[in-house]
């Protein structure tokens, strides 16, 4: 395959960036999208140009490090798939592909396709946990958890924190990410004591980070590589309202 890549290049946080066009040949359909960038970077290194910086790590779709908007879609055209697991058999010979970083004020571009997602960690710091200091736990079977609750918790907990939901949201909202954690912990008996305060505190951190508000457009769940359902946002709204009504 021969491809034309148009990639966002930006040298650091303060620099102005622009789309730069590269031609690339000899792409195999078995390659992953990131392996195409590897090939491009080898080519750039050979000609003395700076390679394209992009975040990636596990390359098996679970660490959440990689993320780029490919032809206007976060993580590219294949549903339920991260960029590292997107294979070139989904593209055609001669395609022109636009590659851009996640765009959000809360995710400043660090370099090229690398963005700073520290805001996600700050949302978790605000309350995305159960306070269970090491050593304090009762026996694991002390509290049975109904299977449907455990399954619901798991479904929400599958979030990999990649940020695609923010990148795709027309409002730049991180509500799917935030709500996934609220829904995960809120579905379990262990998460009940902090349930109301958790939702309110995490929402506050979300808003403070300059993410936009959710308007339930569903763009987030459409691009989510783990298929986190939109219902988690309802669960979060429920807990936030509960918190406001009960005053804590």
């Amino acid at each position: 395959m021969k491809l034309t890549l148009r990639i966002w290049r930006q040298s650091d946080r303060e620099a102005r960036g622009k789309m730069v066009t590269y031609k690339i040949d000899d792409i195999s359909t078995d390659m992953s999208f990131l392996e195409v960038l590897d090939v491009l970077n080898e080519q750039l290194t050979a000609t003395g140009e700076e390679p394209v910086a992009f975040d990636h790590d596990c390359r098996e779709g679970i660490c959440g490090a990689c993320g780029m908007v490919i032809n206007g879609v976060a993580h590219g055209p294949q549903k339920l798939t991260t960029a590292c697991q997107l294979h070139m058999r989904h593209f055609k010979d001669g395609d022109t592909i636009d590659v851009e970083p996640w765009r959000a004020r809360a995710f400043p571009v660090v370099k090229d396709l690398v963005v700073d997602r520290g805001a996600f960690d700050r949302i978790i710091q605000a309350g995305g946990y159960i306070s269970a200091p090491t050593g304090s736990a009762p026996d694991a079977h002390a509290t049975p958890v109904p299977k449907p609750d455990a399954d619901a918790a798991f479904e929400a907990a599958a979030c990999i924190g990649c940020g695609a939901c923010v990148a795709a949201c027309p409002n730049g909202s991180a509500m799917l990410f935030t709500a996934a954690k609220v829904a995960h912990l809120g579905a379990l008996p262990q998460g009940q004591p902090e349930r109301a305060s958790r939702a309110a505190a995490m929402l506050h951190a979300h808003d403070e980070a300059d993410f936009g508000g959710c308007t339930n457009t569903g763009e987030c769940t459409a691009v989510c590589p783990k298929g986190i359902p939109l219902t988690v946002i309802g669960a979060m709204n429920h807990d936030v309202l509960g918190s406001a009504i009960r005053g804590r």
Partner: peptide, 17 residues
């Protein structure tokens, strides 16, 4: 025990265990 207390969603059977 520790992980369950933290909310790790381990697989469960229908009895909740």
């Amino acid at each position: 025990d520790q992980c369950v207390a933290q909310g790790v969603p381990f697989a469960r059977e229908y009895g909740g265990l």
